[in-house]
Design a binder for these strands. Structure first.
Length: 586
DNA sequence: GCCGTTTTCGGCCCGACTGTTTTCAGTCG
């Protein structure tokens, strides 16, 4: 899909125009356009090729942005961007990564001292050439020099899982803190985003000093970035930033709503409030006419004040949540407690760290009702992938185990079968047809062309013995881009052949992403949220997949492994889990 | 640049904190 490429160009155009001091609302229009296109769920080209629809039908995309999209699609370039890049090198945008240095000040550095990159800026600071520029001083040079050191790390977003661990440490650190009545995390962490850029702590207290002193005592603290009456920011040894806000009880809900964001969601909320003659800020909801507070202590109150039911944080991305809330049609988002099965895991037969028996015991102890054992197929030689004989042997073992298990727990005979580079499955159909559950997955040839990759996936989806495509885009967050694949065609084929797509819950994968989850849902394609566990602890990553699913608006209806075993098996066209003796007993 | 049953022009979310300033611009979330 070229949407991401279009979005990147629009964002770069906005960044450079901001640097040039362009109209801020024009920048916002480009950035909004970029976000809308990134979140589209279908290729821009599909809309352009559809005579019934226009890009400008999308609220927030007008003539200007639509024309730019077309130019990028047709030529691969954006003329306005090319023109600016002839005047300003793209490296100036690196300057903006320094904390405290925004577009205005960076522009002064470029225009007055011709500073084009971080190296030149460092040299100028060391030569004390910056302090005499208007708006700068001695302190500026120091903060810039300190900032250059953390500029690289400052942009790094960490996995939600790692943020969650840090959040746990902080919660513990604040436990028993005097005068703290409520303590919550806000920001992208609360929205369950796959990566988190910083942690926002919100505290309900009359004694801000006490809470701030407590934060200043956090063992991982490297430095205090700033500290005022209600707000404090610190940096940890690893470069990660923590923000603390202290508010009174009557403002806690408004502050929680505000600091949870997203920014674009808040813009929409405040715009709506304005139409109703209200003003929303972190202290509450106020009547425009007399500044009287009408809400603030809880989030429910804040949303109610603008005539909306409460919106789950995971949905607050300025996508469709305001409309859905307005129509009282918000989805009942799936929760971890609804999960009954796990349909992707490995054992010591291939590259897992635990035996078949150990995985079963661990899954039962976690309250699951069914699991599928899905080791690798032979193509994944470095993981000791299974050939026909070893696989059939494992399945015979599973048949036996199923007979000895108590009612209420079933092991499905599965395989994560590789989709080979030239296309086709790694195991013959007469073997695959004996499985309860077949995942098709790409592990090799990820650099192939979009047509090759897409054709491989389509071939797997069309195979009657394949039930589901595992980690459909192959991306590893912060490490590897998704392979080049036409997801529109993949969705269409999955829909046509009634196949499942996986949301891999591994915190580094979370593949499908939230936007694709939403697209799959609206296409009516069921999702399996799987741990892909390679160890006993690997079974615990399900919650990260749930986060992502909730962000995609998925409900239990959309997620096959939240269904009862019977319902799930019916979906697979089976009434019993295996060909073993147990099936006769049912 | 986008938008519109108050508007096709004139708006567009709002406040805390810092550093450089003598009242505020820039940055950040």
């Amino acid at each position: 899909m070229n949407n991401a490429r279009i979005a990147v160009k629009l964002e770069q155009l906005a960044d450079l125009l901001e640097f040039q001091g362009s109209n801020p609302f024009r920048l916002r229009a480009y950035r909004t356009g970029a976000r809308l296109i990134r979140d589209l769920g279908e290729p821009v080209a599909a809309i352009l090729n559809d005579t019934e629809r226009k890009l400008t039908d999308i609220p927030g995309i007008g003539k200007g942005v639509a024309e730019k999209c077309i130019a990028i699609l047709e030529t691969g370039e954006l003329p306005q961007l090319q023109a600016i890049l002839e005047e300003i090198p793209a490296s100036v945008l690196d300057l903006l990564r320094i904390p405290g240095l925004g577009p205005r000040k960076a522009a002064v550095l470029f225009n007055k001292r011709n500073i084009q990159n971080l190296d030149q800026l460092k040299a100028a600071c060391e030569a004390q050439e910056i302090r005499n520029l208007e708006g700068f001083g001695e302190k500026s040079e120091q903060t810039i020099l300190a900032g250059i050191g953390i500029a690289a790390a400052a942009n790094e977003r960490i996995y939600w899982r790692d943020a969650d661990q840090l959040a746990g440490d902080l919660r513990l650190h604040f436990s028993g803190c005097a005068g703290v009545h409520q303590f919550e995390f806000a920001g992208s962490y609360r929205r369950g985003k796959e990566t988190v850029g910083d942690l926002d702590i919100l505290v309900d207290s009359q004694q801000g000093e006490v809470a701030m002193d407590r934060l200043a005592d956090f063992p991982e603290l490297e430095s205090v970035i700033g500290r005022g009456k209600t707000k404090m920011s610190i940096r940890l040894h690893n470069g990660f930033q923590i923000d603390l806000r202290v508010v009174p009880s009557e403002s806690f809900g408004a502050a929680l709503q505000y600091f949870t964001g997203s920014k674009d969601h808040n813009v929409a909320v405040r715009g709506r409030a304005k139409q109703l003659g209200l003003k929303v800020n972190e202290w509450g909801v106020f009547r425009e006419v007399d500044d009287i507070s009408v809400a603030g202590s809880s989030e429910e109150e804040v949303y109610a004040a603008i005539d909306l039911p409460w919106i789950p944080p995971e949905l607050r991305e300025a996508r469709t949540e305001i409309e859905l809330s307005e129509a009282n049609q918000l989805p009942k988002l799936i929760s971890l407690s609804e999960i009954r099965g796990d349909l992707h895991m490995h054992t010591t037969a291939t590259d897992g760290k635990a035996t078949l028996q150990e995985m079963i015991t661990a899954a039962r102890s976690r309250g699951l009702e069914y699991i599928a054992i899905t080791d690798h197929s032979k193509r994944v030689a470095m993981a000791n992938g299974l050939d026909e004989n070893r696989l059939l042997q494992q399945w015979a073992e599973i048949d036996e185990i199923n007979m000895s298990l108590p009612q209420g727990f079933v092991v499905l005979k599965g395989i994560e079968c590789d989709i080979l580079e030239p296309g086709g499955m790694d195991l013959p159909n007469d073997v695959l047809e004996q499985a309860d559950w077949v995942l098709g997955a790409i592990h090799y040839g990820q650099n192939q062309s979009v047509q090759q990759i897409t054709d491989r996936l389509l071939g797997a989806i069309e195979n009657p013995h394949v039930h589901c495509i595992a980690h459909p885009t192959g991306r590893l967050i912060n490490k590897r881009e998704p392979y080049d694949v036409n997801m529109d065609q993949v969705f269409a084929a999955a829909k046509k052949h009634d196949k499942v797509l996986e949301l891999n819950a591994n915190p580094a994968r979370l593949d499908l992403n939230d936007v694709y989850c939403a697209a799959a849902q609206s296409a009516g394609i069921p999702i399996a949220i799987n741990t892909d566990a390679h160890s006993l602890g690997g079974l615990d990553v399900m919650k990260y997949g749930i986060n992502q699913a909730r962000r995609g608006g998925l409900t239990g209806f959309d997620v096959v492994n939240s269904w009862s075993l019977d319902t799930f098996l019916k979906k697979l066209g089976r009434v019993s889990p295996s060909q073993g003796p147990r099936s006769g007993a049912n």
